[in-house]
Amino acid sequence: MPNRWTETEAAPPIASPYAEILAELDRGVQEIKQAAFRLKAAGEGIQAVERNADRILASTRMLEINVSDMMGRPRSLASWTEDDAEL
């Protein structure tokens, strides 16, 4: 489909007096996110793991709103999936 917003994911960071700290914070946010997705995949079928990982991901999305959107992320709006196309 043309003009999906995901085509803009390569957008550069938005200029900010806090560019340096934002870059570092964003690295931390992405680490948490990737770790939570790995955890979720490893615990697939175990509700106690999957559901708690989803909660971490929802909170991580709030960090993305506060930090990572300034860096041109994220590629997915729904926190529980790495790619909205899978919804």
Binding site: A58, R61, M62, I65, W80
Partner: peptide, 8 residues
């Protein structure tokens, strides 16, 4: 609302 929306 999803849980993500609730966090929001």
């Amino acid at each position: 609302d999803t849980w993500q929306d609730w966090e929001w």
